[in-house]
């Protein structure tokens, strides 16, 4: 009996059948996840791609194939170019500010033992409040004549600044608000990273001569926060690319287009002018940017990060 089972002649067909059964079982288990992926991500992306090569207008009954015309138009459009530059500028301010600011706060909050949770809550509050509601508060704070910020500037002897209605300061002001909103969340991520660093490493470093805060930070904290920093960097960048709500409620792209950003233009084209096909093409460009930047960051940093 045992002999017959282990002889190759008797074994081979069973093995093949078993392999096939296992294969089907495996596929069966993977299927639900695949269908979900198809319905929620790949499907919409395909629809987006289809729309982007048509001149479909929202509510219209017919549409024509226009090929890459939408993309050509977008790349030639000075408004889109300007909004692209504005978006990149915004990202260039928000990413370093939101990442290193949060790191600084996290390192300081981490050292507090009794008041730590108090600071955590304070810094996390902007994350939990809706930005649209907080935007009104910011609008009041930054008001050229009534706002307390300008009141302070005047008291210090400076000329008042019209933060949101001056083309040279509007985008930077929005970036500061963007940083303010991101700090809390990034701080929590960094705090989690800091908590995971074993305490005896700092003690060993202390004995080995890392007596100053700078030495401890450079020898232990910064390298061991590598994975956290990379995650925070990529998510912050994606969030910054998606800047929309402050623009929509506070500046509407103005003054003189100085705060026009990609997502706001997509919104205008798609939901105000109903150029759905064109908006789809813009969305594609937008997604491509995020993908390229995230991938570049990940590849550049992955080698340097210690896990």
């Amino acid at each position: 009996m045992t002999l017959a089972l282990t002889s190759p002649a008797a074994f081979a067909p069973t093995a093949r059948r078993r392999f096939r059964i296992e294969r089907f079982t495996g596929l069966g288990f993977a299927l639900p996840a695949f269908i979900l992926l198809l319905l929620t991500i790949l499907g919409p992306l395909a629809v987006l791609l289809l729309l982007s090569v048509t001149n479909y207008e929202f509510g219209g009954v017919d549409m024509d194939w226009v090929g890459l015309a939408n993309f050509q138009k977008a790349l030639a459009d000075p408004i889109i170019r300007r909004s692209l530059v504005n978006t990149l500028l915004y990202v260039a301010i928000v990413v370093p500010g939101g990442v290193f600011g949060a790191l600084l706060i996290a390192v300081m909050v981490h050292r507090r033992s009794r008041t730590r949770s108090f600071y955590e809550v304070i810094y996390f509050l902007p994350v939990t409040s809706t930005l649209i509601a907080m935007a009104t508060v910011w609008q009041f704070l930054l008001h050229p004549s009534l706002g307390p910020v300008n009141g302070l500037l005047k008291w210090l002897g400076f000329a008042p600044i019209a933060f949101l209605s001056e083309p040279s300061t509007a985008l930077a002001t929005l970036a500061v608000i963007g940083i303010w909103q991101l700090l809390g969340f990034n701080m929590i991520l960094f705090l989690a990273g800091l908590t995971a660093i074993p305490r005896d490493l700092y003690e060993a470093a202390d004995i080995d001569g890392c007596s100053s805060g700078i030495d401890r930070f450079l020898t232990i904290t910064w390298p061991l926060l590598g994975p956290t920093t990379m995650f925070v960097l990529v998510t912050t960048m994606i969030t910054a690319f998606k800047i929309f709500d402050t623009v929509a409620v506070m500046t509407r792209g103005g003054p003189v287009g100085s705060t026009e950003v990609l997502l706001y233009n997509i919104y205008l084209e798609g939901f105000q002018y109903f150029h759905t096909g064109y908006a789809a093409a813009l969305t594609f460009i937008f997604l491509a940017f995020i993908l390229v930047f995230s991938a570049a960051q990940t590849f550049a940093l992955d080698k340097k990060v210690h896990y």
Binding site: P198, D200, L201, E203, A204, A205, T219, I220, P223, L224, G226, H306
Partner: peptide, 9 residues
């Protein structure tokens, strides 16, 4: 140290 506390990176 008991845990050796070597710098892992």
């Amino acid at each position: 140290f008991q845990s050796y506390a070597l710098y892992p990176h």
